[in-house]
Design a protein around this nucleic acid. Structure first.
Lengths: 340, 340
DNA sequence: TGGCATTTTCAAAGCGCTTTGGCTTGGTTT
DNA sequence: AAACCAAGCCAAAGCGCTTTGAAAATGCCA
C-alpha cells in the first residue's frame, strides 16, 4: 500500500494525502480525518527510503563504531545502549552503527555525513582536541558528545558527568580520613574523563599540601587484569599507598583480588573507592567488602543523549549547550581512617 | 557530485556510467576505465537513499533490540558486536539497531521488514518454538539465528555452539573425578542454550546412574548477584553439591564470593567449572583459583555471522544450513576429586 | 556490397515520497 | 458588479539512482 494507491482509493491527489498525513495546515479538517482514518485502516506506512530521498531526513541516529582485531568495544557501551534504545524506541528512531577502522574513523564519519545516512550522530570517549568533533563541526552534521573534549576553540553540544568533582569529593573524603598516599588507577589517560578524574584527585590532595606524584598513578584499559597488575605494582613501591581510587568496578575486581593475594585487608590496610557506572550485573555493594563509589548511571546518560539528539534533529534544540551531571559519592565499608 | 553530473562530464549517459560502475558486462572496457577513473578522481559515491529506493537493497543488516526500563541488554552483546563489526567494516555493511518493546518485538520486525530498511537481520537468544523465527520465515526477510530454536517444523539458517556437548564434557570430567552431586547454575532457562546445557549435564550424570534433580538446578539472569544467591541456596541443601557448573563467568564471580563467604575452598571442597564467552575484561585464569571453563569466543561467532549474512544478502548462500561449533573444555585449577 | 549478429550506448520510465506553484471555489470588500 | 482573498485542492517536478527496451555503431560473412 503506497501513497498513490491510497490517494486513488480516496479520490484525492497524492499531494493532499501527503499533506493531510504530515499535518500541514492547508487541508480541510474533515478531509484530514478521512485520510488519516483510511491510512490507519489500510495500514499505510510511508516508505522511508522514498521519504528520505525526497527530504534528506533519515529518521536514524548514527554512531561510528571503532573496530579492529585488537580493538575491544567498551563493555559500558551496552549499558549506554540500553538507555539510548529505551528512549529511541518511543520515538521510532533507529540507531545505525557504522563500523570503522579504529585508527581512521574520519573516513567513516565523512562517508556517513556525505551519504546523509543519519540525521545526527553521537560521539563517545572524547579526547582533548578531539578530531572527530572538529570534523563534525565542519561537516555540519548534527552531533552530541558523550563526555567532553578540551582545547577546542568553539563550543559544541555535549553531555558529561562531573568526573573532576566526583574524584575530588572521593579524594577529599580519603584525605579527611587521614590518607596522604592515595593512588589512582585510572582508565585510558588519553581520554578526557581520565584527565578530569586525575585533576579532581590532585586538587583534593593539594588541600592538605600533598602532590599527586606520577608513581601513584596508573593508567590502562578497564580490565580486571589491569586492575590487578596496577595494584600489585603500586604496593611494591617503597612508600605504598594507603588508599586507592579506581576508575571502574571491573578494574576494582582486580584490585580486590590483588589485595587479597597480598594478604591486605580492606579497609583496614587499604581504603578503596571506585567509580560505578551502574551495571545491572555487577554491583559495588556485592563486593567482598562493600565498595564505596562515585556513582553515575551511564544508562540514564544514554537516554538523555537520545532525547537531546531527537530534539536537535527536530530543531527544538540548536545551541551548542553543554550539560554536566553531578556525581553521587556513595560511602560503604571499603573506606576507613588511614593506618598508622 | 551525482550520477547526472558525472555522466555529463564524461559525455556519456547515466545508464552507461551506472553500468560501468556496477560492473555490468555490456560496457566497453576502455569506457569503464574512463568512468571508474573519473568517479574516483571526483570522489563520486552513489547516494545510498536513491540506490535503495531504486533497488530495494539497503546495504545494512538489522537487529531488533529489546528494550524497556527493566530490560537489560546482555553484556555479551558488546563482544558479539565487536566480531560482527569487525567483519562488517571490511564490507561497508552498516548495522541498524531497531529498539523494540521487549514484550512485543513482532511489531518491530514487521516494520523493519515492511520498510525494507535492511537486507537481513540476525536473531539472538532464541527460545524453543521461537516466534521471531517463524515470523521472519513467513515475511521472507533473510535472517540468521545466533543459537538454535527447537520444535520448529522448518529448517532455518543458524550458527550455534555445541552447548550440550560442552556441558556434557564438563559434567563427564566431574563425574570421572568422583563427583555425584553436581549442581547447575544456569542462565535464563526459557532460552535454548540453557536447555541444551542442562541436557548435556544430565546426560553426563546419567552415565554414572545419577539423575539431575530440580533442587540441583538454578536458573536466573547472568549477574554476579544471581551467581552468589544460587550458590548460597545450593549449599544450604541437605545434600549439598560437591561441584558446580555455571553458565557464565559473571555469575562465576558470585559463586566464588559465596564460597569464600562460607569458608569453602575451591577445589578442595567444591569443584567449579564455568562457561567462558571470552571477554577481554574478565579472564578465567585470573580468578582467585584459575577457573576451568568451557570456552567459545562469542566474538568469533559475531564475525562468522556477519560473514554468512553478507553471503546470504549477495545470494552466495541460500540454504537454511545450520552450523554448530565445538566448544573447548579448558581444565584449570578449579576442579579436583570429590571430597569424601 | 548488403545483410546480420554483436557490441556499445542511450532515452526514458520507474522507485514512492515531498513540495512548488497554480487553479478553483466561495465569501468578502469597495 | 467588479475586484480581491483565503481556503482547499491538484498536477507536475523533483530527489538520484537502476533498469528496460530500443537505437546506433561495429564487425563478420557471404
Amino acid at each position: 500500500m503506497n501513497l498513490k494507491q491510497l490517494a486513488l482509493m480516496l479520490d484525492l491527489s497524492q499531494t493532499t494525502v501527503s499533506r493531510a498525513l504530515n499535518g500541514y495546515p492547508e487541508v480541510n479538517e474533515e478531509t484530514r480525518r478521512r485520510v488519516v482514518d483510511a491510512a490507519k485502516r489500510h495500514g499505510y506506512r510511508p516508505n522511508p527510503s522514498a521519504r528520505r530521498l525526497a527530504t534528506g531526513k533519515a529518521g536514524m541516529i548514527g554512531y561510528v563504531l571503532p573496530t579492529g582485531a585488537s580493538v575491544d568495544i567498551d563493555p559500558h557501551f551496552v549499558e549506554f545502549l540500553s538507555g539510548l534504545g529505551d528512549y529511541a524506541r518511543s520515538h521510532e528512531l533507529d540507531l545505525v552503527l557504522s563500523p570503522a577502522e579504529a585508527d581512521d574513523e574520519e573516513t567513516t564519519y565523512r562517508r556517513v555525513a556525505a551519504n546523509k545516512q543519519v540525521d545526527a550522530v553521537y560521539v563517545s570517549a572524547p579526547r582533548p582536541k578531539d578530531r572527530r568533533i572538529a570534523l563534525l563541526h565542519q561537516l555540519g552534521l548534527p552531533f552530541l558528545v558523550h563526555g567532553r573534549s578540551e582545547g577546542l576553540d568553539f563550543p559544541y553540544p555535549h553531555l558529561d558527568i562531573d568526573n573532576e568533582g566526583a574524584f575530588h569529593e572521593a579524594g577529599r573524603l580519603l584525605v579527611q580520613l587521614g590518607h596522604r598516599r592515595i593512588a589512582l588507577i585510572n582508565g585510558d589517560d588519553t581520554q578526557t574523563f581520565a584527565i578530569f578524574r586525575e585533576r579532581g584527585l590532585r586538587r583534593a590532595l593539594a588541600v592538605s599540601g600533598v602532590e599527586l606524584m606520577p608513581p601513584m598513578i596508573r593508567s590502562a584499559g578497564m580490565t580486571e587484569e589491569n586492575g590487578y597488575r596496577a595494584t600489585r605494582s603500586l604496593l611494591e613501591l617503597d612508600v605504598a599507598p594507603t588508599a586507592i581510587l579506581c576508575s571502574s568496578l571491573i578494574m576494582g575486581l582486580g584490585v580486590v583480588r590483588a589485595l587479597c593475594d597480598l594478604g591486605l585487608s580492606v579497609p583496614k590496610d587499604i581504603s578503596l573507592v571506585a567509580h560505578d557506572d551502574v551495571f545491572p550485573w555487577l554491583r559495588p555493594e556485592n563486593f567482598p567488602v562493600p565498595l564505596s563509589t562515585t556513582r553515575s548511571s551511564i544508562r540514564a546518560a544514554g537516554a538523555r543523549i537520545a532525547e537531546r539528539l531527537a530534539a536537535r534533529i527536530s530543531g527544538l534544540e540548536d545551541d551548542p549547550r553543554g550539560e554536566v551531571w553531578p556525581v553521587d559519592l556513595v560511602v560503604r565499608g571499603s573506606v576507613a581512617g588511614a593506618p598508622l
